[in-house]
Simulated scan of single mutants.
Amino acid sequence: MSQSNNRLAYIYVFLGASLWGIIGIFVDNLSQQGFSALQIVTVRVISASIMLVAFVAAIDVKLLKIDWMDSMSFIGTGIFSTVFFSWAYFTAIEEVSLSVAVILLYTGPAFVVVLSRIFFGEPMTSRKIGALVLTLFGCVLVIKVFPINADRISLYGVLVGLGSGFGYALYSIFGKYALKKYHPLTVISYTFIFASIVMLPTSGFTISPQQLQSQTVWLNILGLGFFPTALAYFLYTMGLSMVESGRASIAATVEPLVATLIGVWLFNEILTIFQIIGMLFILSAVVLVQFKRIGGVRN
């Protein structure tokens, strides 16, 4: 891959992850309107799937044609990843607190690096390991995980939290397989179609008509389905199609950085010196993971 295409791939990943970082705006608004966590996941995946299918049908309906023998890839991205990691993440928040749940979720890049080594033969380089360490420490500082309230920590919560990181990682693995044969728009469309098939009967029918009567609710549902979902996944998947899974996943850890900055901008939160240091760690990891060779030596 040329250097310019390599940069473009990371720009896609960075923009997609940045859009993931604004999800809290819509989730907070819908929560205030009485939506439960799983109901929010449901409206997210259903609205995204409707928008994606409509868009793809309008520009090239052939992109919606798949070999149903390849359904396992989309079951992987839609159900094993999107649905499972959402359930595990929300459960972890209830069990161990938001800060610890976020850190456990961001074990995802480590899972991606290991799984990519196993399934795709991607090298486990010192540069990737260094970037993972920077990412972990950066996230710990940005999310202000310390001091940890030991009374809130449970073994079940930790295991479910690690499960959320594993589920988060599976999108990059199954997505990479699907991208060998299909366009990124096809991959994300069927990701959310399969996710919707699961979420509609389990949580969708719990949404009452009264919850959908407000214009504000619909604006937030559409915003949630488009910006941090359909568009974000499209940009990330475009980047994933151009670089190694492990590198894309590490670069995507700018998400908590963006989420923190959103909190500062919208909710007047105050950044601590440790959060600023954490942001520098994350940005350093994103820069570090982009370079493959120094002086002709693979890193």
Rank of each mutant, 00 (worst) to 15 (best):
G161C: 00
T125R: 04
I103S: 00
V43A: 03
L224F: 10
G165E: 04
E122L: 08
S196K: 04
G175K: 09
G167W: 05
E122P: 09
V217P: 09
G157E: 05
S126L: 15
A285P: 08
V140P: 06
A285E: 03
I193H: 12
Q3E: 14
S49V: 06
A251I: 07
G24T: 06
L271M: 11
L261K: 09
A57D: 12
V112I: 02
A48C: 08
A252M: 12
L115C: 08
V83E: 01
Y171V: 08
L134W: 00
F120H: 04
F174I: 08
L19E: 03
G204K: 00
N268I: 08
S214T: 10
L266N: 05
L261Y: 08
A248K: 01
Y182N: 00
S214Y: 09
L170T: 07
N220Q: 13
T186M: 02
I66N: 00
S245M: 04
E95A: 13
A88F: 02
T135V: 07
I262M: 12
T260K: 07
I270K: 13
G24P: 03
I294M: 01
S284P: 11
V287K: 13
S189F: 08
L159Q: 04
S126H: 15
V27E: 03
I75E: 03
G223V: 09
F174Q: 03
M1L: 11
L64I: 10
G246K: 00
Y182F: 06
R44V: 06
L235Y: 01
A248S: 07
Y168H: 05
R298Y: 14
Y12W: 07
P209F: 06
D151M: 15
L15E: 12
G278L: 07
I221Q: 01
G138C: 10
I66C: 10
T260P: 04
L200V: 12
A285W: 02
K128M: 04
L179P: 03
I59D: 03
W218K: 06
Y12M: 09
V102G: 04
A92C: 07
A195G: 03
T260M: 07
G175M: 14
V41M: 09
K180Y: 12
F281Q: 06
F205T: 07
A150L: 11
F174Y: 01
Y233T: 07
G165D: 09
F35Q: 01
F35H: 01
L136S: 06
F74H: 05
T272N: 13
I22N: 02
F174S: 03
V297M: 11
V198G: 00
L38F: 13
L63W: 05
F85Q: 05
G130W: 02
L155F: 10
Q210V: 15
L159C: 06
V61N: 13
F234Y: 14
